[in-house]
């Protein structure tokens, strides 16, 4: 094992631990603000993992859409639906032993499936830049989903504006 791979592994474990810890905080933290900013850690570490997996376009898209878009939306929603003067907003959770047991069983099943993967794994050798392949694919093989998605986005835009606007009193 070369030094290069050891370094990659260290980066991988750093990112993975950040992601795990942050998602744990999202699940259990009792402070609303901390919860929202823990999600930031999850999103960034996942973006880093995409980078490590050579999905460079996904890396940029994750940060651009999730961090710059969705997370900001979520934080705005928290600000608009709470009395924000208080920093320590509580975020109740109704945990019970049943829930924990079910989630643990789910996790065990998923890990079992992951560990019993067949041995057909090989490294993906791309000779072209990924962005170019994605661009070509969007306009050839996955043209239909692309178009449907654009219509869906338009519908969401209009729907969100309609839902969030103030009621006009007749």
């Amino acid at each position: 094992m070369s030094l290069n791979e050891i370094l990659l592994n260290i980066i991988f474990y750093a990112l993975a631990l950040t992601g795990l810890f942050s998602s744990f905080m999202v699940a259990t933290s009792t402070n609303m603000v901390r919860t929202a900013f823990s999600l930031l850690g999850v999103l960034f570490s996942f973006a880093g993992l995409y980078g490590l997996l050579r999905a460079d376009f996904l890396f940029a898209a994750q940060i651009l859409v999730y961090v710059g878009g969705i997370l900001v939306l979520i934080i705005f929603a928290i600000m608009l639906t709470h009395k924000i003067a208080n920093v320590n907003l509580s975020n109740e959770s109704t945990s019970s032993s049943t829930v924990i047991a079910v989630v643990c069983i789910l996790f065990a099943v998923l890990v079992f499936i992951a560990l019993t993967l067949p041995e057909y794994i090989k490294i993906n050798q791309r000779n072209k830049p990924l962005t170019e392949m994605i661009g070509n694919n969007l306009l050839s093989d996955s043209l239909l989903p692309f178009e449907i998605l654009s219509v869906l986005l338009l519908a969401c835009l209009i729907g969100a504006v309609y839902l969030a606007r103030k009621e006009v009193k007749e």
């Binding site: 603000v33 900013f37 930031l40 460079d56 376009f57 890396f59 940029a60 898209a61 940060i63 651009l64 961090v67 710059g68 878009g69 997370l71 900001v72 934080i75 600000m79 924000i84 920093v87 830049p129 990924l130 962005t131």
Partner: peptide
């Protein structure tokens, strides 16, 4: 970077999170 300009836009937009964090945490 193969995705140069996209990368810059993405990280440029992540500054917002820091600003929101500062504003909120200041109380």
């Amino acid at each position: 970077l193969n995705i140069g300009i996209l990368y810059i836009i993405a990280f440029g937009s992540s500054v917002i999170l820091g600003i929101l964090m500062a504003g909120w945490a200041s109380s």
